[in-house]
Amino acid sequence: MIENLAMFLGLNSSALIGVLIGVVFGIIPIVKDTAESNWRKRFREQVKKGIINEQLKPEDMQHLYERWEQDRKSVLQSLRTMLSEAISGEDDNLKDKADDIRDLIAKHEEREPFSELPENISLQLNGLKNENPDMEKPITQLAASLNELYSSNKAELAKQKKFSFFGFIIGILGILITIASLFYQK
């Protein structure tokens, strides 16, 4: 089948396979970006509904952004977008909710050093900070350092997963091309 398609297009089968692989690898980032954009939009809509219905509390934000797989920067960006819509009057439902959005932003920025940490570490550091108000600055610095370490390890793990996935795909393609060349020898 591949050889018939290759002859129809005037290419040899290796070139056609290369083109198909290129197209697949070219489409993957586009699909990934579209999915992430859709998740950000759905997260923003859910937060907006919670604000409008007066059901959203600052404590709920962590659960929401973990559910929608948002990082702290995208959460802050979403809240700031909603604040600008509330201030400018672009969204009639948010006009009277600017103070609520400001409170959410303030709580998020206050919690920011703890936001990317695992929940149990975050809770322990917050507990220490609340028990020892005079130790707030060192605890916040420790949280920021742990956050940076945790984020870099998370990014490195994601990079290793990508390399192993692509290595697996290339290995499978190599096996398939080898098998195909054995069957289609002239």
Rank of each mutant, 00 (worst) to 15 (best):
7 M>H: 02
19 V>C: 10
174 G>E: 07
163 F>S: 03
110 E>Y: 04
58 P>G: 01
64 L>Y: 07
53 N>C: 12
48 K>A: 08
4 N>R: 07
29 P>D: 09
96 D>W: 10
143 A>K: 05
13 S>V: 06
135 M>Y: 04
120 N>I: 07
87 I>Q: 08
81 T>E: 11
135 M>Q: 09
84 S>W: 03
109 E>M: 13
153 N>W: 04
138 P>C: 09
116 E>C: 05
140 T>M: 15
12 N>W: 10
76 L>M: 03
142 L>V: 01
129 K>Y: 00
83 L>N: 02
71 D>R: 10
79 L>R: 00
155 A>V: 04
6 A>T: 07
136 E>C: 12
156 E>L: 14
18 G>F: 04
28 I>L: 10
11 L>Q: 01
101 I>R: 04
142 L>G: 00
66 E>D: 09
45 E>A: 04
22 G>Q: 05
86 A>R: 05
158 A>M: 14
105 I>Y: 09
19 V>S: 11
106 A>V: 05
86 A>G: 09
146 L>F: 14
61 M>L: 15
62 Q>H: 13
27 I>C: 07
67 R>Q: 01
181 S>Y: 07
125 L>A: 00
26 G>L: 07
180 A>D: 10
49 K>G: 04
54 E>D: 13
83 L>Y: 02
5 L>G: 08
97 K>F: 11
124 Q>T: 06
177 I>H: 02
7 M>L: 06
101 I>H: 03
78 S>L: 05
25 F>E: 05
93 N>G: 15
111 R>P: 00
54 E>M: 13
33 D>R: 13
85 E>P: 00
183 F>I: 06
75 V>P: 02
185 Q>C: 03
116 E>Y: 04
23 V>A: 09
163 F>D: 05
52 I>F: 07
1 M>W: 02
82 M>S: 10
125 L>V: 02
71 D>F: 05
68 W>D: 06
159 K>T: 10
177 I>R: 02
64 L>I: 14
11 L>E: 00
77 Q>I: 14
42 R>I: 11
177 I>M: 12
84 S>M: 11
64 L>D: 02
144 A>H: 04
61 M>P: 01
78 S>N: 05
51 I>A: 05
69 E>H: 08
93 N>C: 14
10 G>T: 10
161 K>Y: 05
165 F>D: 06
163 F>P: 02
155 A>Y: 07
98 A>K: 08
71 D>N: 11
119 E>I: 13
56 L>C: 01
135 M>P: 00
174 G>K: 08
105 I>V: 12
126 N>H: 11
21 I>N: 12
123 L>Q: 03
125 L>I: 02
92 D>R: 12
141 Q>N: 15
184 Y>T: 10
138 P>A: 03
182 L>V: 10
29 P>H: 06
128 L>N: 06
68 W>P: 02
119 E>A: 13
1 M>V: 01
